[in-house]
């Protein structure tokens, strides 16, 4: 076992990792941050997306020891300081961007990464960027709407999906 130290959501956190320990396992089992989900475990579904040094990655396909010393942002770091929902989270709630919620941590993290790169994405850009995040409930329409809303753009043109 090797000691791994990360700056997680602004706080320095340490734990023990084997060579094979995945970042997602380290976050969930060693640091107790269970907001990041394991969906497929094959880097297809995107439920495990977190930011490593500001870049979205699939934490089920990154070794904990390989990012030792990095700055990591998880879904637990997306809320405002007073505990209220962050802009992207609030938009997902307002626009019914989730049903079962399992994919939501990854959806929120990917959406936040998109908005950091491209603050006013088009609907097509949002759909394209989220292609590595799979949702089996919503049909994506309301997720796209939530991301548009989080970027401060008008969502009325998207119409009303089943809500």
């Amino acid at each position: 076992m090797t000691k791994v130290t990360l700056t997680v959501n602004g706080r320095s956190m340490s734990g023990e990792a084997e060579g094979r320990t995945l970042l997602v396992s380290f976050l969930r089992e060693e640091l107790g941050l269970t907001g990041t989900h394991v969906g497929c475990d094959t880097s297809q579904c995107g439920a495990c997306v977190v930011h490593v040094d500001g870049k979205a990655v699939k934490s089920c396909t990154v070794l904990a020891q390989d990012v030792n010393g990095a700055s990591v942002t998880t879904i637990e770091g997306m809320a405002n300081e007073d505990g209220s929902l962050g802009v992207v989270q609030q938009a997902f709630q307002d626009h019914h961007g989730l049903q079962c919620g399992f994919c939501t941590p990854g959806m929120v993290m990917s959406s936040a990464a998109l908005l950091a790169e491209n603050p006013k994405p088009t609907e097509a850009e949002i759909r394209h960027y989220l292609e590595g995040n799979i949702c089996r409930c919503t049909g994506y329409h309301n997720i796209v709407k939530a991301v548009l809303a989080a970027s401060g753009q008008d969502v009325s043109a998207l119409g009303v999906a089943a809500e």
């Binding site: 995107g46 997306v49 979205a56 990655v57 699939k58 998109l114 590595g132 995040n133």
Partner: peptide, 9 residues
């Protein structure tokens, strides 16, 4: 290639 998160790694 892949998707944005894959392209970052």
């Amino acid at each position: 290639i892949g998707d944005p998160a894959v392209r970052n790694r």
